[in-house]
Design a protein around this nucleic acid. Structure first.
Lengths: 166, 166
DNA sequence: GGTCATGTGGGCGGACTGTACAGCTCACGA
DNA sequence: TCGTGAGCTGTACAGTCCGCCCACATGACC
């Protein structure tokens, strides 16, 4: 676990807002030297804070307008089997083991309600799932984001970056 | 809504796997001309299929190791108020209005269990939330992904791309 | 005081981007 | 059957950026 300083957070935000920007343009935006930007990005990638770079795909625009969240109750100790099952199904966008009455929460996408129903039936038919409940997404209330969270922590100023004044 | 052909899907997958690749390298990977890659990417961005380009941040690596999903029951017609409330809270990563017994499903991140508890209390205290249930994420079963879904549909071959085979 | 890590500013060659243009080929409609 | 237009290819050129150097400055730490 790394702790980020204010420059790191600004760098991540700048990367998100200016996807096409190279190191040189970022250095201009952040008022630091190009080498600093490159070193910071390298460090963030090396330490696993940056895991990739999109592209972020709007599934609705790509023809998958129906989204749903499904909770699964599974047989004791069958988590691995369920993980394989879910990973093998393309409609599963992500899945997490959770506390609570259910064991797994996963998010599905489909091109239509019929398509979604088909997916749900396939998952239920697989045997490892004891019970499932599903809710369909009606609208996006808060779009996916991380910057506000990263900014919410009090950040120390960069240890050394004379040219960087926020 | 756009329908993507096989080249579009391969292009999106290549972009994800080779984040640093420019148009020229992508054109080599996909065995098409550079101009084609540029034209396709432009089209995908213009039509809203590509909405952005990361960086994808591993929140656990950034100090926010605790994730939770929360379902909210809200007062009749208070969705806008809840949306504002949620948007104002940095710990809210995303939120969706859903069918089912609850009205809103949202995903939270926090630096610790105490931090999470504090967030939950703040959301409950706000008044617009009638009831809430929360589950904590224990582990990632399927990592976020979209490529399998995009590949799952039978895609027509690109209408014209003589150099593009497979 | 010395050392280390980090940031700054600069320079260099090679590589890439943006843009333009001509030619090819297929789909479509007159 | 024959244009026409859209899409892809290949090429070219100028401008820009990247990766990699270097010397030097500045705090933190020993």
């Amino acid at each position: 676990m790394t702790d980020l300083d204010a420059l790191d957070v600004d760098l991540l935000a700048a990367l998100r807002e200016h996807p096409r920007a190279g190191a040189l343009e970022l250095s201009r935006l952040l008022q630091v030297a190009r080498g600093t930007v490159q070193a910071r990005v390298d460090r963030l990638e090396r330490e696993g804070v940056i895991t990739g770079y999109g592209p972020d795909v709007d599934l609705a625009a790509a023809g998958f307008g129906v989204h749903a969240f499904v909770t699964l109750e599974i047989a004791q100790g069958a988590l691995d089997a369920v993980a394989d099952e879910l990973a093998a199904h393309p409609a599963v966008l992500e899945a997490y083991a959770t506390t609570g009455a259910s064991d797994v929460l996963c998010r599905l996408a489909a091109s239509s309600h019929e398509d979604l129903q088909r997916t749900l039936l396939e998952l239920n038919r697989s045997g490892v799932v004891a019970r499932s409940t599903s809710v369909v997404v009606l609208s996006e209330v808060v779009a996916p984001r991380t910057t506000p969270l990263l900014r919410s922590l009090p950040r120390e100023a960069p240890r050394r970056a004379p040219a960087y004044r926020d």
